[in-house]
Computed example of a mutant assay.
Amino acid sequence: MQRRSILTCIGLALLSPIAIAAAPGVPDWEIGPVIRGKNYSVGMPLRPRPTRTGWTFDFPAPDAARGHVHYVTFRPGSLAGKSRITVRYRIEARPGTRFVPQENPDLPAALSLYLQRRGDTWSAKGRYEHYRWFSPAATVQPLAPGEYEMRVRLDDPDWISVMGRTSGSNPDAMRAALADADRLGLTFGALGGPRGHGVFATAPARFTLLAFDIR
C-alpha cells in the first residue's frame, strides 16, 4: 500500500534489532550495483552521506551525461521470520524539477524495494532468475518532492523476480532468498518499466532516507 505522510518523530529506539543494525548512516549502505568491479550508478559516490537522522545523496543533474543512480542497498543478514519493511524518506527539489529514468525517459521515474539472494551471478538464468526480487507493483512510488512512507510485506505473493514472475508462483524460491539475503534496499528506475536501471534529475535534487524498519 502506498501512503504519503507527514513524518512524526521516529527514533532508533522504536526499531527492531535488525533495523538498528541496518539503520540509516551505517557505512554498509552502498550505491551501486557493483558487478564484477563496475559500478552501474555512474557519476555517484560509493556511499551515501550520513546525516543526523539518516543518510542522503544528490541525484545526478541535469541530464544522463552527469550520471544516474540505480541501487542503494546494504547487507541485512537473514530475513527469515521477518514479515514487513517500512521505509520513510524525503525528496527535495525546486518546483518544475523532473526525475527521469535514463533508459526510459518517456516513463515516470519511480522508487522500489529490492532483495537479492546471496550467490547471485546476475545472469537471471536457471535458478538465478529467482535470486533478485522487486517489491509488488502496488508499492512502487513515483519520484516527486515531499516526504513519503512505503510499507511492504515480505509475504506478499506479488514480489516480482528479475524475469517478471511472482513470488506466489514460486514461494520456495522467495523463502530461500529471504533466508539467505545478501542485499536489501532501494532501486531507482521507471514506473511500468525496469525498476533499477537508473534515474537522474533535471535540476539539483536530494534524496534522504529517514527510516528503514524491518520487523
Rank of each mutant, 00 (worst) to 15 (best):
A93G: 03
A93T: 06
R94C: 07
R94Q: 14
P95C: 15
P95V: 15
G96S: 13
G96E: 11
G96N: 11
T97D: 09
R98Y: 04
F99C: 03
F99P: 01
V100G: 08
P101F: 11
P101D: 12
P101V: 11
P101G: 08
E103W: 11
E103V: 11
N104W: 12
N104Y: 11
P105V: 12
L107A: 09
A109C: 08
A109H: 09
A109N: 06
A109S: 13
A110I: 02
S112Y: 02
L113H: 03
L113P: 01
Y114C: 04
L115Y: 13
L115T: 07
R117Q: 14
R117D: 05
R118T: 13
G119W: 12
G119M: 11
D120L: 05
T121F: 11
W122F: 15
W122V: 07
S123Q: 07
G126T: 06
G126I: 09
R127H: 07
Y128F: 15
Y128W: 14
Y128G: 00
Y128H: 15
E129N: 12
E129D: 13
H130W: 14
H130I: 00
Y131Q: 10
Y131S: 14
R132M: 12
W133P: 06
W133I: 06
F134C: 09
F134K: 03
F134N: 08
P136A: 09
A137L: 10
A137P: 00
A138H: 06
A138E: 03
A138V: 04
T139C: 04
T139I: 01
Q141Y: 01
Q141S: 10
P142H: 09
L143N: 03
P145E: 10
G146A: 03
G146P: 04
E147C: 09
E147F: 04
Y148I: 00
E149F: 00
E149S: 04
E149M: 03
R153M: 01
